[in-house]
Design a protein around this nucleic acid. Structure first.
Length: 440
RNA sequence: GGCCUCAUCGUCUAGCUGGUUAGGACAGCGCCCUCUCACGGCGCAAACUCGGGUUCGAAUCCCGAUGGGGUCACCA
């Protein structure tokens, strides 16, 4: 049994695409599952469009996701031209490729592969046998000139030389496979096993593309928004694959354990952000408070009172799907009453059909109960215990609504006991007195 | 258009060797909890593309149609 070797060979011509993320993931999983190697290399033969920043983006993305490649030195095709040339020249020498006039401009010479014009049949781990008549491909170009090979040539040589056993890539490469098999056979290499993954689709069912669908196609977007790598891995794995039952929450280790090509879907899968959001939230809920806090801190104002954050933490967690959501939540003033005195509308202090007098009376009573709660025991539970019987007697809405409004000034907020607990005795009393005076 | 390929709720999917009230999840809607919001609990709605076969019986097997997607670069 030869060692399994998979690879992820993006071209650094754009941000790390979510489709690429899934391709990388499946390559990683399959390699690990078989105690093999997961290789990373850069296909930067297009000098015009290849950018250093994208190389970094790609590599750091893999590391961030928890899918570090096994090779420490990252090969760049732009630095391997001598190797490709050697193979290219061999093909020419053996009559398997030839130089030809540039058919479009008539200037210069390109290298074409001498197509034997037969049928190529290969086995795809996901789709079974695929058979193509290569005659339609004609004598395709494999190099811009005798020194500059293009994609098909470089892929084949690299895969062959690095001992790649499994080529796992997107379905958009299916039509490239026969060409590459042709070159590979001319070179005398061993055929790897192919697996073409169904595409990751946008809402309109077309391939996710930067041009058409914008920044939401790249990993960078989700990193910026504060999604968790585990959640992204989990979600993306479920795009076109599933463990067979009802399980949906799967760690990378689970995936390595459970993955099989038989369970890979044949049709494309729409990238559904809402599901990603849900999964992300599940991961957030599962982690400890300390981690949650650290996650939020990155997206909150620098000068935020960390002690206060401890108390609001559970409230925030209930209301967000990603760390980034907290920014908007915070800026919307959702918790503004914690930082500053609320502006209270006197009319709003009165519950439904009740009178101002009644509201004033309830608030006065509440103030008295609050005063009796000792400073040391001033927490949600004890506050609730002291006021609850009265609220039950007079009607919860009649008492609790003005109470909460006095503290927050908002139609929507957590319950008054929780808010009072967060504010502390002094501030709670101050706001109650203020509300009472407004009703005078 | 040629070639390749795919087809179960809006979306992700279960369904492996034919017999199920076609299951789950997200989203949606409703109810409950409740002073409001959020959380949570419960529930509802929602699919086998169509047409032929094979069979006692088809979402499942075969053929065809239709529809979708991919690809047809000196880009990868």
């Amino acid at each position: 049994m030869t060692k399994v070797v998979t690879r992820f060979p993006p071209s650094p011509t754009g941000l790390f695409h979510m489709g690429g993320v899934r391709t990388a993931l499946f390559n990683y999983i399959f390699a690990k599952q078989n105690k093999g190697e997961f290789l990373f290399r850069l296909e930067d033969t297009d000098k015009e469009r290849s950018k250093k920043e994208f190389e970094e983006e790609l590599y750091s993305g893999l590391v961030w996701l928890g899918l570090p490649p096994d090779n420490t030195d990252v090969p760049r095709q732009s630095e391997r031209t001598e190797i490709y040339k050697e193979h290219l020249h061999r093909l020419i020498a053996e009559g398997k490729a030839y130089e030809a006039e540039d058919s479009t401009t008539g200037k210069g010479k390109v290298v074409r592969f001498k197509n034997p014009n037969g049928a190529i049949t290969f086995t795809d781990l996901i789709r079974g046998e695929i058979s193509v008549d290569t005659t339609d491909l004609e004598d395709f170009i494999i190099a811009r000139n005798t020194d500059e090979p293009v994609y098909h040539m470089t892929v084949v040589v690299d895969d062959m030389l690095s001992g790649v056993t499994h080529v796992i890539r997107g379905e958009d490469h299916t039509s490239n496979t026969p060409r590459q098999i042709l070159i590979l056979e001319a070179l005398g290499g061993t055929r790897p096993i192919y697996a073409h993954l169904p595409l990751v689709l946008a809402d309109d069912k077309s391939k996710l593309s930067k041009r058409k669908h914008g920044e939401v196609v790249s990993l960078a977007y989700y990193r910026k928004k504060g999604y968790l790598p585990e959640a992204i891995i989990n979600f993306v794995a479920l795009l076109g694959w599933n463990p067979g039952g009802d399980r949906e929450m799967l760690s990378l280790d689970d995936l390595i354990q459970e993955f099989s090509f038989e369970k890979v879907q044949k049709g494309g899968a729409v990238f559904n952000v809402q599901k990603l959001n849900w999964i992300n939230k599940e991961y957030i809920k599962k982690m400890g408070a300390e981690k949650q806090k650290r996650g939020l801190l990155e997206f909150l104002p620098k000068d935020i009172d960390e002690k206060m954050l401890d108390t609001v933490l559970p409230l925030i967690i209930d209301r967000i799907h990603t760390w980034g959501d907290v920014t908007e939540l915070w800026e919307s003033g959702e918790f503004s009453y914690l930082l500053e005195e609320p502006v209270v509308d006197p009319g709003k202090l009165v519950w439904k059909e009740e009178t101002r007098e009644a509201a004033r009376e309830h608030l006065t009573k509440v103030k008295e109960y609050i005063e009796k709660v000792s400073e040391a025991e001033f927490n949600t539970e004890s506050i609730k215990a002291s006021i609850w019987p009265y609220a039950e007697e007079k009607g919860r809405g009649s008492v609790l609504w003005p109470f909460r409004m006095a503290l927050t000034g908002k139609d929507k907020s957590p319950d008054p006991f929780t808010v009072a607990g967060m504010l502390g005795k002094e501030r709670t009393l101050k706001r109650l007195r203020n509300a009472i005076s407004l009703l005078a």
